[in-house]
């Protein structure tokens, strides 16, 4: 088994008497993608904050491998419009780096073209990539991505997931990814933790997808969308760069969730 980067044991946390997390355990090893899924208000972001040491749990303990370098991609960036900050400055705020290195990190996530743009002027999808580049610049052993596809259109969501999957291969780092968009998370993931204040179920994506607790939490619609994504995933590597036609199940999923948009050519 791969070397563990982070383990959490029996984490419990209540905020002003409200139980938020109960007996949550979790482990991320290097080279592994662990997905934390759950509905809104399930305590996902709270758990991430505990793991990152931003919040102290009431019970349980968090262990990080000594000297672990964490690259963190927060859920939101609320930057005041009055702050004139270029993407390059933003990316180097955490790690001082020469322009060429910043450009390389941005190129790795397909956002080299916004290097000199003001942070406030880039689109939602570009901003997520820029934040990912900032995390990558730290040469992380562990990437923690909190809702990385929030505010990104469907096309961009697939691209980002492909990118995250590729990062695991090229960088060999462990990745902890938080989402409520379960159908997208599943296909690239080794281990899924389904959280609703406690761990409802966990395991391999296929296993979790059949778990009654999972089906109860997300409903059969979510399960169907998952199936669609699995189908898409099989095609993705065969037809990379080509336009993939709509899948038969897409209309059945009711509302765009399963629609497979054309894949953009890698910007390399």
């Amino acid at each position: 088994m791969a070397e563990p980067l982070l383990t959490a044991e029996s984490i419990g946390l209540a905020i002003r008497g409200n139980p938020i997390l109960h007996d949550v355990s979790l482990r991320v090893a290097s080279g592994e993608i662990v997905a934390l899924i759950g509905p809104n208000g399930a305590g996902k972001s709270t758990l991430v904050r505990v793991l990152l040491g931003l919040l102290r749990p009431d019970s349980g303990r968090v262990w990080l491998r000594p000297g672990l370098r964490v690259g963190y991609m927060p859920q939101r960036l609320a930057l005041d419009d009055t702050l004139p900050l270029s993407v390059q400055r933003f990316v180097t705020l955490g790690t001082p780096a020469a322009r060429a290195r910043v450009r390389a990190a941005l190129a790795e996530v397909g956002a080299a073209h916004v290097l000199d743009s003001p942070v406030q002027a880039v689109s939602g999808g570009e901003l997520q990539r820029v934040m990912l580049a900032r995390a990558l610049l730290r040469e992380p052993d562990l990437l923690v991505l909190d809702e990385p596809i929030q505010g990104v259109d469907l096309n961009g969501q697939y691209e980002l997931y492909d990118l995250i999957g590729a990062l695991r291969r090229t960088r060999g780092c462990g990745i902890l990814i938080v989402s409520h968009e379960l159908h997208l998370v599943m296909a690239t993931t080794d281990h899924v933790l389904c959280l609703n204040r406690h761990v409802c179920c966990s395991g391999h994506p296929d296993h979790v997808a059949r778990d009654p607790a999972y089906l109860e939490l997300f409903g059969s619609d979510g399960a169907r969308r998952l199936a669609v994504y699995h189908h898409h995933h099989n095609h993705h590597h065969d037809l990379h760069g080509a336009v993939v036609p709509d899948l038969p199940l897409a209309s059945a999923s009711g509302g765009g969730g399963g629609h497979r948009p054309p894949v953009e050519q890698d910007r390399g």
């Binding site: 904050r49 990152l52 040491g53 931003l54 964490v70 963190y72 927060p74 960036l77 930057l79 702050l83 900050l85 933003f90 705020l93 955490g94 790690t95 900032r134 730290r138 923690v144």
Partner: peptide
């Protein structure tokens, strides 16, 4: 100071 102005928790993790 600039780092915590942009994102306090991100700065803390860094």
């Amino acid at each position: 100071l600039l780092a915590i102005t942009v994102h306090e928790e991100l700065a803390q993790v860094e």
